[in-house]
Amino acid sequence: MAFSSFSAFLAMGGHAPYVWAAWGVTALLMIASVGHARMERRLLIRDLKRRARRETTRPLPSTSTAPNSLQASHTDDT
């Protein structure tokens, strides 16, 4: 242990703002990346399920009638 107490740990030998800002932003961005990926997946699966349900209740001749929302959605996901 490099610190004698918890408050010394928080103070980081006077460098607290820098150490915690760097670590905080890193943690925030990494968690946000995971959160974004999970959200993306959940919304996508919800859409796809809705579509699958629609097709089972009202069977269409083929898969050619794809909803446009999914076709067009690729441009704004980057």
Partner: peptide, 25 residues
């Protein structure tokens, strides 16, 4: 994880994705 989402998005019209989604009810 994100490649899996991208697969679902791009292959949304494929049979196997539809089957997968129907199973997942």
């Amino acid at each position: 994880m994100r490649t899996r989402s991208e697969i679902l998005r791009r292959e949304a019209n494929k049979r196997w994705v539809m089957d997968l989604m129907k199973e997942a009810h």
